[in-house]
């Protein structure tokens, strides 16, 4: 154990924790939004993330023609390349999430199947997506081209404000602000809150439940897609089972903040990212995944409703 790193590298660890944690938060949204309206853990979300990382690679390498060995881009070309990769990943994940709902959940729901059936269906979809990708990639990890040169804004108190770290911090915050406004202020956002409060009463308002459910899968897919882009940009590689650890961590983040609660996903992700960074600095990086599981077990044991309690709808008051 090495406690001295906590003092010597404190701000650096905080910055790394923020970046990692906010990526978790975005994926956690995929779990939390869906849980809010369906009371169902969409276990396929981790694999939607995984496919998102490959979508980023595909856009950068195949669509825009930057091979893995390509030199970093600059100026306008860099900006539009990154934007296309981000948007491409978001759209791919959103479309996939909506399709997963249609294929794996909606039909079960229409027949009044139990939640357990949906849960098994979720795990089935998850395995299907992962194994399909395993075949396509022959289990090999893939490297992303370094299109964004990792220059630094500078160093403050030992914390290195690198461009990719900053991107992974700023982008999720912007996404969360937009989403928070959408859910609290827009008509469709209010429909989501209404359904999460009571499906029956929402129907009595004339809300088309199935459309709202598709919308939440769409939003969860969009944020998960953004996370996939940021992950690929920061860590520059992916593999068919990248979703597994990410899924566990993001699910833990969602539960930590209170599953079903949007702001909870934000703070849960942050807290988990920090804990992971500090734990791996002190105990060694082999303890990273252990930290996540320990947090998950502890929260389920002692505070199963999470730090902020359940419910999308309570973001307001």
């Amino acid at each position: 154990m090495n406690f001295s790193v906590v003092t010597t590298q404190f701000w650096s660890l905080v910055l790394q924790g923020l970046a990692l944690g906010l990526i978790y938060s975005l994926v956690a949204l995929g779990y939390t939004m869906v849980y809010g309206v369906l009371r169902l853990i969409n276990f396929a979300n981790s694999e939607i993330f995984m496919l998102g990382t490959f979508a980023v690679l595909w856009v950068e390498i195949e669509l825009l023609g930057h091979p893995v060995a390509a030199k970093p881009l600059g100026g306008f070309e860099l900006v539009y390349t990154l934007v296309i990769a981000l948007v491409g990943s978001m759209i791919a994940c959103a479309v996939l999430a909506v399709i997963v709902e249609l294929v794996a959940y909606r039909r079960l729901r229409a027949r009044g199947a139990s939640r357990l059936a949906s849960l098994i269906s979720a795990i089935g979809v998850s395995i299907f997506l992962m194994e399909t990708m395993r075949m396509f990639t022959e289990s090999r990890p893939r490297t992303a081209p370094r299109l964004l040169e990792k220059w630094s804004f500078g160093e403050i108190a030992g914390a290195n404000f690198r461009i990719d770290t900053m991107l992974a911090i700023v982008a999720p915050i912007i996404i969360f602000v937009i989403l928070d406004q959408f859910v609290n202020r827009s008509r469709l956002g209010k429909a989501i809150r209404a359904v999460s409060l009571s499906e029956e009463n929402a129907k009595l308002m004339g809300i088309n439940i199935n459309r709202v459910i598709s919308l939440t899968f769409l939003i969860g897919g969009l944020t998960t897609g953004a996370a996939a882009f940021l992950y690929t940009t920061v860590y520059e590689n992916t593999v068919f089972n990248v979703g597994f650890n990410m899924g566990i961590a993001a699910f833990t983040a969602a539960v930590l903040g209170g599953i079903g609660n949007i702001r909870g996903a934000f703070y849960g992700g942050l807290a988990l990212g920090m804990m992971e960074q500090f734990a791996s600095a002190v105990l060694g990086s082999q303890w990273k995944a252990v930290t996540v599981f320990v947090v998950l077990v502890l929260i389920l044991l002692f505070k199963p409703n999470g730090l902020f309690g359940e419910a999308v709808q309570q973001t307001r008051t």
Binding site: R187, K190, A191, R193, A194, L197, S198, E200, N201, L204, M205, G206, I207, A311, Q313, Q314, T315, R316, T317
Partner: peptide, 18 residues
């Protein structure tokens, strides 16, 4: 069946959703 987390006005607006 009041939407507890929504304001009175928001609840009324929901009545007109469609």
């Amino acid at each position: 069946g009041i939407f507890a987390g929504m304001t009175v006005l928001e609840n009324l607006e929901m009545g007109k959703f469609n």
